[in-house]
Design a protein around this nucleic acid. Sequence first.
DNA 1: TTGTATGCGTTATCAC
DNA 2: GTGATAACGCATACAA
Lengths: 334, 334
Amino acid sequence: MAKTTISDIAKALGITPSTVSRALAGNSRVSEATRMMIERKASEMGYERNLLASSLRKGFTDTVGMIVPRINRQFFSNVISGAEAILNPAGFNLIICQSHERREDERRAIATLIRNQVAGMLVSHSLESTSSESLREVVDQGVVLVQFDRIFDDLESSTVVNDNFSGAYEATKHLIEAGYHRIGHLGGDDQSNVYIERRRGYIKALTDAGMAVDEDIIFGDSITRDKGFYNMAKALDKGCDALYCAGDYAALGVMEYARHNHIDIPGQFGVVGTANENFAELLVPSLTTLEQNATEIGQRAAQAFLDMRFNGVVSNIVVSMKLIVRDSASRQHK
Amino acid sequence: MAKTTISDIAKALGITPSTVSRALAGNSRVSEATRMMIERKASEMGYERNLLASSLRKGFTDTVGMIVPRINRQFFSNVISGAEAILNPAGFNLIICQSHERREDERRAIATLIRNQVAGMLVSHSLESTSSESLREVVDQGVVLVQFDRIFDDLESSTVVNDNFSGAYEATKHLIEAGYHRIGHLGGDDQSNVYIERRRGYIKALTDAGMAVDEDIIFGDSITRDKGFYNMAKALDKGCDALYCAGDYAALGVMEYARHNHIDIPGQFGVVGTANENFAELLVPSLTTLEQNATEIGQRAAQAFLDMRFNGVVSNIVVSMKLIVRDSASRQHK
DNA sequence: TTGTATGCGTTATCAC
DNA sequence: GTGATAACGCATACAA
């Protein structure tokens, strides 16, 4: 069964394709009568506009691409939902690609999206990508670019990031106020704006409180569960009694080590994580963590795309974080 | 900066677009020399094939659509990764849509994908969809359809499902062998093949063990965390000492109620879940659950699409489940 | 092996 | 307000 085209409708109605096209596109220069007639016939014949042909002719698509490291992270899947909530009503579809944190996958995703003529891209780059090289291609091709969460600042793009500095500051302050004395930091690699900012916030909180900053207890590997487990051992060796972790999976590893070694959390050791993954509230004790407002970031990123697309406005948005206080860092003050 | 087309390349080389098209498409009827020349020029000019034009001309795209209830479920995001692992090397892109368990969103996703001329769709329908009505449109439009996990059997499509019957059978048997005496079932709505099968497996395990089946302790609401919490209270009223839950979130609710009411798991009460969500191993006690092999399901679904697309082969695949034994149903035998 | 001609379905620019 | 015509970029049947 061949799909019905505007020509089919035109033929059935004894008019020309142009008129049908205009009517279906909502063009004003067509009489109410014929418009109604056409619309009825169209739905009667089960007509669906061929987006391929339409976009080819118009020179642009109503599709936006999104590239994230992985979709099974609470943060990214919520960003996606947030972006959809804005883009779909605006008539755009979202294509989602995963980079799996690999530069090569990211490069392929970019090429795919460009070939698909997307109107824009919302991207949070992979950890393997340490330069804006691949993304420059996007800009060069004239595709609207919005970076979120992890960004490069040497690109002509709108950006949406968390206020990682202030968030980390609050998280660390929370540990200080709970009475911990030697607070370490478990961060990610120092190429990324995200982890650089969180580390800065951590350091500022310590200095503001008149506490010494010791590079020995700033761990900068990566924020996996394994690393959390491993670095908790090292942190204890160095005499820490608390850790601000730049990720919940790392905090999870920390808590696992603590349980295995019968270290009481929060009594003997305090932990604050980042991201509010779905398991954070389920741990025992429940994990105090920094909420990232993923949905808002998705919405803002989508809105930033629309602003660039239709008004040529470039924006740099900062979304605040919120400390979710639970049990892992709430001991009695001494 | 206009994008380079095959005509641009042809012009630059003093040949015709057809030859360029053939060379770039890997057509054999073009000399090695000109092919090399064309390829070099193409990459030199930064040529990227316009998929819109190509697909419009060919009459089909290299895009596959996937519709899932939500992407932030471990199961579905792993299905997606599995499908990508097969489809990308085969030259297909995947567009992911969420139905949010709503019929209307699902319908819109289907329309979107059809308008985008996808070559096929991999779908697990929303819970609100209780009939194959919307999906019939897919088949009618000549789009290859693969259903997975949740399926309707009155459609011309390939299917990939878990062996929910056997899985539930094993899960229930595990509870029986652990010595629990009055084992209830917390299932989903009975319109869905998934929950019907799990319930059947549960019942069969009981009868095979010579135990009575009591409709009073078969709860069939839905498998949310709330319902788990709520129905745990009812299960206790009815004298249950164990529950096989058709979902981990429901099992989570069950365990929360138990903790709030100081009921020892697994000592006084046994729980087995389904899905192996990422939090299952992190609960205290850790949750014994049925693993769904999501990645395999994704791979199989993608392969089923390729088989239909290129060989016209319709397949109905059943993927086995695996019981992950942890602590929530392992008490000492009496 | 290469060139010529045509059309995929739609929209935009004319003219009427 | 409607119709005729061309063009978006590419791929293919046919001719050479």
